[in-house]
Design a protein around this nucleic acid. Structure first.
Length: 813
RNA sequence: GGGCAGGUGGCGGAAUGGCAGACGCGCUGGACUCAAAAUCCAGUGAGAGUAAUCUCGUGAGGGUUCAACUCCCUCCCUGCCCACCA
């Protein structure tokens, strides 16, 4: 008998499958479509490790099973290749990023083919391909024309090491998530996408898609919708007994956002962010010395410093505002616990009912007035009471419940035209400029006469020029700024000399729409307009199952939903949401329980495992090791288990088989079909593999086995271990590939004639008796009472109550 | 501080109201072998007992139920994500 030698068989079948084009999806095919997708990889210099292979192999099993079930399956692949890691890698290794990308892609491709993935390679895309980024730029222009891409001078997060502006999402604990360098502030003119205009829909439409709870919640939390009111506090001329604000003409009022209008009468101070105070200074406010010093210091603080020091600081600005209802004078303070980017950048201080305000008031000895009573008692003010209650000390609103009172106060403010109800979001507009070489050029030209001018669609793509030096510059300008012949162009409008935008797009740009690029077959030949693809988009979209990592929940997953919605509004795509079902796979840790990392030297690559055991073993172990969505450490030891299983299966199919009837096995196999089908549908790959093992143990022990079971077991198992099953399938005498077989049907499970009746006394199992199916409670009770064991237990006692379920009888004494 | 996911043998895990520990790793014993590896067979939650068997057992405590890993309440612990968001 030939030994099970994966090296020999795997390459052979991979070649045959590819040559026959089994995995090419057909546009507009009559079969029902199924679009299944995993996040396209970033082709890094390190290649794949076994963590990447987890979703790839599992989703492959899924795609293969769907094909056998009669679907027209699209399972595509591409490369998200722009961005910093490649640029850094290229700089470190002194090669061009394009060359590095080519090399890395080649390696990734080799590794993925080695795994026997049933990908449609004919639709492969690469975000750094000019034919691809032409469209990325085109989308930018559509957003620009719609007023959703705009330039603004803003304080951005700046990584001094990478010399690049960062989006909020890329700053983690005040550090650049990629390199760990503390982030600094820098004021620069940047491109922004108005994702906040879509905040409400991004939130609401979560109800129309099937995402894991934790993903859904993260997005809801990130968007951070809150309902409240905007309230204006007029600024009053300075009074003699307060430090003079020499000039109060810079603004008529301070506007605040609050979710607790019911606490309005509890306002004892107003706090504005240092950034807002700075704006006032710019508008002509002559702030007292210590105030302007505080403002400057606060603004210069890095993100990290602001987060580290939670002790409240602040300074009395000397400005006085008037309470819109009580007409009391309210002092205005400046403090850095107020965030410039949220709401109006100013808050009303209600120390009795907000912990932060309470802390601030305590520190600076500001008055505290209770206006919401929890139980009729006056509070001692050891801490703020933030819950609802009955309003007190609130003039005409006393006695009302918080919710009702808040609404009434807003109505009153609206009548007086000093306030209105309002909705606020935590979500910020998306900073879309990067000062780097390895990204899509932003298709904008600056003309002295005409200003900002969009590159004409027919002139796309704006090619990324070849340069010798692509290192980031210390000035914070893109390396592209140095390339005179590229930067200097003629204005498309007036033909006068003009300059190109030298910033590039962030690495999220290409992944915004790659799932559409897969549908634009032969992307290189396609021309504008995009409406040409409407039909093919309509056929394939939305994506039926999208797998990806948790780390993209508030990045790629949110960004791409926004872009897709925009394209929907423009009528280019057929649905409001791109992903019908989203699932997230768990991270694979190294054997030592830490993250797999080159620096820990604990990385296991698929190459190692395939070399020793073959691709089918790797595939099965990836699926077997734990529930798909759960984090799990790799275990080299346990890989052997699945290899032994395949080895036994190989020996069994190659050995002497006694063909013949075996009802028990036949029946068990029908159950297996249902089990595997269900487990695949709910992505329970681990229990599916266990069921295959269990059944194969039964087959091997069986005295006889029918051809039906023998053959269909292979079909059922083919999506999981495609190579060995193909080999054994052909060994059974079949000429046609197992890929082309239909999914086995479970059919009716033959009725069992005998079952094991479980007999319990007071809920504890005391005996099991073989009985005929469908016996009555009386019969079951007789059987139970006749059991020696039960007699022994019961002694002279008689059951008070008997519970019978058909399979179980419980005697209560 | 908020949100989410968890806590079951030596390990990864299975069972979502009805025989806890499927499947696999590891371990123990045996067969084969000069020997080892591989393979095959048997065993493997803990405690007691020569044994049949008994008692205990799913983070802790309480509750619902004939019956709870599973449902409810209180608490502890771990991991992940978010966090001065007014």
């Amino acid at each position: 008998m030939k030994r099970y030698n994966p090296k020999e068989i795997e390459k052979k079948w991979q070649k045959l499958w590819e040559e026959n084009g089994f995995y090419k999806a057909v546009d507009f095919d009559k079969k029902p479509k199924y679009y299944t997708l995993f996040e396209f990889p970033y082709p890094s210099g390190d290649g794949l490790h076994v963590g990447h292979a987890r979703p790839y192999t599992a989703m492959d099993a899924y795609a293969r099973s769907k094909r056998m079930q009669g679907y027209n399956v699209l399972f595509p692949i591409g490369w998200d290749a722009f961005g910093l890691p490649t640029e850094n890698y290229a700089i470190a290794n002194k090669i061009h990023p394009r060359v590095a990308t080519e090399r890395n892609v080649k390696n990734f491709k080799r590794q993925m083919k080695m795994l026997g993935l049933s990908l449609d390679w004919s639709r492969e895309v690469n975000t750094t391909d000019p034919k691809y980024y032409k469209w990325t730029q085109w989308i930018f222009l559509q957003l620009y024309k719609a007023g959703l891409a705009y330039r603004a001078e803003i304080s951005i997060n700046w990584c001094p090491k990478c010399k690049v502006g960062l989006a909020n999402e890329e700053v983690v604990n005040g550090k650049h998530e990629r390199c760990g360098t503390p982030v600094e502030k820098k004021v620069k003119k940047q491109w922004l996408f108005a994702i906040t205009k879509y905040a409400d829909r991004l939130l609401k439409d979560l109800d129309t898609v099937d995402y894991p709870e934790r993903v859904r919640n993260s997005q809801i939390n990130w968007i951070g919708r809150s309902e409240g009111a905007l309230i204006k506090f007029p600024i009053s001329p300075p009074k003699a007994d307060r430090p003079r604000a020499d000039n109060f003409q810079f603004s008529k009022e301070v506007e605040v956002f609050t979710t607790r209008a019911d606490t309005l009468f509890g306002v004892t101070f107003i706090v504005v962010s240092p950034e807002l105070a700075k704006q006032w200074i710019d508008l002509g406010w002559k702030a007292p010395k210590e105030v302007s010093v505080y403002i400057k210091k606060a603004i210069d603080k890095s993100e990290l410093e602001r987060q580290e020091n939670k002790e409240k600081t602040g300074v009395d600005s000397g400005i006085v505002a008037i309470h819109p209802l009580s007409k009391k004078e309210i002092p205005v303070w400046v403090a850095d616990y107020v965030l410039a980017g949220y709401g109006t950048g100013a808050v009303m201080g209600v120390p009795a009912h907000d912990e932060r305000d309470f802390e601030f008031a305590t520190k600076f000895k500001l008055p505290i007035i209770e206006v919401v009573s929890q139980d009729g008692k006056v509070h001692s003010f050891k801490k703020a009471y933030e819950g609802d209650g009955v309003m007190v000390n609130s003039e005409g609103f006393n006695g009302l419940k918080s919710k009702e009172g808040g609404e009434k106060i807003i109505k009153e403010l609206e009548k007086l035209k000093v306030g209105k109800s309002s909705v606020n979001y935590k979500l910020r507009d998306w900073v879309f400029s990067r000062q780097h070489y390895w990204g899509e050029p932003i298709p904008i030209i600056y003309c002295k006469k005409c200003g900002e001018v969009a590159v004409d669609e027919k002139d796309l793509p704006v090619l990324l020029p070849d340069v010798k030096h692509y290192e980031p510059t210390d000035t914070g300008e893109s390396p592209l700024a140095d390339i005179k012949e590229w930067v200097n162009v003629k204005c498309p409008k007036c033909d006068e000399p003009a300059k190109r935008e030298t910033d590039t797009m962030p690495n999220w740009a290409g992944s915004n729409w790659y799932y559409l690029a897969y549908l634009m077959q032969g992307i290189s030949n396609f021309q504008f307009p995009i409406s040409k693809y409407k039909e093919v988009f309509k056929y394939w979209m939305p994506i039926d199952l999208y797998d990806g990592g948790m780390e993209h929940t508030t990045l790629h997953l949110l960004y791409s939903r926004f872009i897709y919605k925009f394209l929907y509004d423009k009528g280019f795509v057929p649905t409001a949401e791109p992903y019908a079902i989203r699932r997230s796979h768990g991270v694979v840790l190294a054997e030592d329980g830490r993250k797999m990392s080159k620096s820990y030297k604990n990385v296991i690559t698929p190459d190692d495992v395939v070399d020793e055991f073959g691709a089918d073993t790797l595939r099965l172990y990836e699926m077997f090791m734990a529930p798909f969505d759960q984090m799990v450490p790799w275990s080299s030891r346990s890989v052997i288990g699945v290899h032994r299983f395949l080895d036994r299966l190989w020996k069994f199919y190659n050995g002497k088989i006694n063909e013949g009837k075996n009802e028990e096995l036949e029946n068990g196999f029908k159950k297996l079909i249902s089990k595997i089908t269900e487990d695949l549908n709910s992505l329970k790959f681990n229990t599916a593999v266990a069921a295959f093992m269990e059944f194969s143990n039964k087959m091997i022990k069986a005295k006889t086995i029918s051809k039906n079971v023998l053959e269909n077991y292979l079909k059922l198992f083919a999506p999981f271990a495609p190579h060995i099953t193909e080999e054994l399938w052909q060994k059974l005498g079949h000429k046609e590939s197992i890929n082309l077989q239909n999914w086995p049907k479970a059919g009716e499970v033959a009725k069992e004639t005998e079952i094991t009746l479980v007999v319990q006394i007071n809920g504890r199992v005391r005996d099991t008796i073989k009985v005929k199916v469908g016996i009555s409670q009386n019969e079951a009770e007789k059987f139970a009472m006749n059991s020696e064991k039960i007699k022994k237990y019961l002694g002279s006692q008689k059951p008070k109550k008997v519970i019978f379920t058909g399979k179980l009888i419980n005697l209560v004494v």
